[in-house]
Computed example of a mutant assay.
Amino acid sequence: MLLTLDLNDPRPLHEQVAGAVRRAVASGTVLPGQRLPSARELADALGVNANTVLRALRDLRDEGVLEFRRGRGVSVLRPPDGREVLRRMARELLDEAERYGHRPEEVIEIIKELS
């Protein structure tokens, strides 16, 4: 499972890890029922602390994307809800736009120009 993080991304690392796993599941790289590598293995691969990965995995469990089973590790329960993923991405876009001084209405106009 190949995940990458953007070191220039201002979001907390656990959110970036959760997003990377969420994208892997949504894209079909990791399928429902498939086990994930251990938190320690993921942390080593990403160059982050294992607690950061565990926090991300717990967030995904709370969303219903992952399932924790004692003695069996963490496995994918279901793909993330596409609408929820888009809401999260839209929130990130609006936050980024605000950092650059743009209002939501301006973002909507930009999106309309692209479609």
Rank of each mutant, 00 (worst) to 15 (best):
R88H: 11
D44W: 01
D95W: 10
G28I: 03
E84Q: 13
Y100V: 09
E41C: 00
G33D: 05
D81K: 07
Q34E: 15
P32K: 05
G71E: 09
R69H: 06
P10R: 10
V48Y: 02
H14P: 08
R91K: 12
L54V: 04
I111N: 03
D62V: 08
G71Y: 05
P80A: 03
V21G: 03
E63D: 15
R91D: 14
E109W: 05
L13C: 01
G73C: 02
D81P: 00
L36R: 04
L54Q: 14
V25A: 08
L54A: 10
A18V: 06
Y100L: 14
L86Y: 01
N51A: 13
D95H: 09
P104H: 07
V74A: 07
D59E: 12
R87M: 08
N49E: 14
L93S: 03
R72V: 09
A50G: 00
T52D: 04
P32L: 05
V30S: 07
R61V: 12
L94H: 05
R11W: 08
E63R: 15
Q16H: 02
N51V: 03
G82I: 01
A26N: 10
E106V: 03
R40S: 13
L5G: 11
S38L: 06
A97Y: 06
P104F: 01
D6N: 15
A20D: 09
A20G: 15
Q34F: 02
R58S: 13
L5M: 10
L31M: 09
